[in-house]
Amino acid sequence: MEVSFNDVKYTYPGGVEALKGITFNVPTGQSLAIVGQNGAGKTTLVRHLNGIFQPTSGTVTVGDWTTAGHTIAELSARVGYVFQNPDEQLFARKVFDDVAFGPRNLKFDEEAVASAVTEALEETGLTKEAQSHPHHLSLSERKRVALAAVLAMKTPVVVLDEPTTGQDHNGVRMIASIVKKLREANRTVIAITHDMDFCAENFERVIVMAQGEVLADSSPENVFNLPEVLAKARVEAPQLERLASSLGWKSHPMNVDAFVDNLEAKSR
């Protein structure tokens, strides 16, 4: 499902201008990463997608809906949103019930609920914890429960707010493979992240934000080759891009294989 922002401005009730006219369009099945320092307006922006925020001016559309005409509950059938802090999201006494909450609200029949929950728990590596109390799990596990809870809703658009923070290496790998699966299923994925290596390796498009504005919007290769933009947004390029540019390369390897391919080309 396609989503778009059309000259979206948002001013907080206190008068702080968080978004200063944002326009972009994400086609069906695209994976988009939004980067920028804390306070750049990233979370405010994506919270417009499911109606938690309504624009002060401009419009946000999700498929053929304008968010202004729909409640958060209605939009939840189209946009799944994983909160950054799982403790703001989880509430049930059992992991299974928490993950089942969304599908049940969306009126899946019990059989469909069970299969959606089982699948989501498997994808997030939590099958063993189905009967555990969410509060007895570690932060990284709770974050994955929150992710599973949204995956189980099978929404055409999935929004992830800093999915990799608090995850160890295995957790990050698991999330990378979930992003890949969502893309293969032609679902639209929008993620906020501070992990530029994760971003470079798993997303086809990157938006750089600073002070409520979009500074750059392109492929990771292009975006991470804009030193002035990155400096202004206080964003660091991914590790291998930094290395390639320190070595004076003109190419922009976004992952280990691409980097080593370059080495091979150069040693020939």
Binding site: N50, I52, T71, I72, A73, L75, S76, A77, G80, Y81, F83, N85, D87, E88, Q89, F91, F101, G102, N105, L106, A149, V150, M153
Partner: peptide, 18 residues
Amino acid sequence: DRANSILLAQQARGLSLK
């Protein structure tokens, strides 16, 4: 504040307050 955001999060998972 936290109660508020938990409520928002459940609406974001389809909970209707109508």
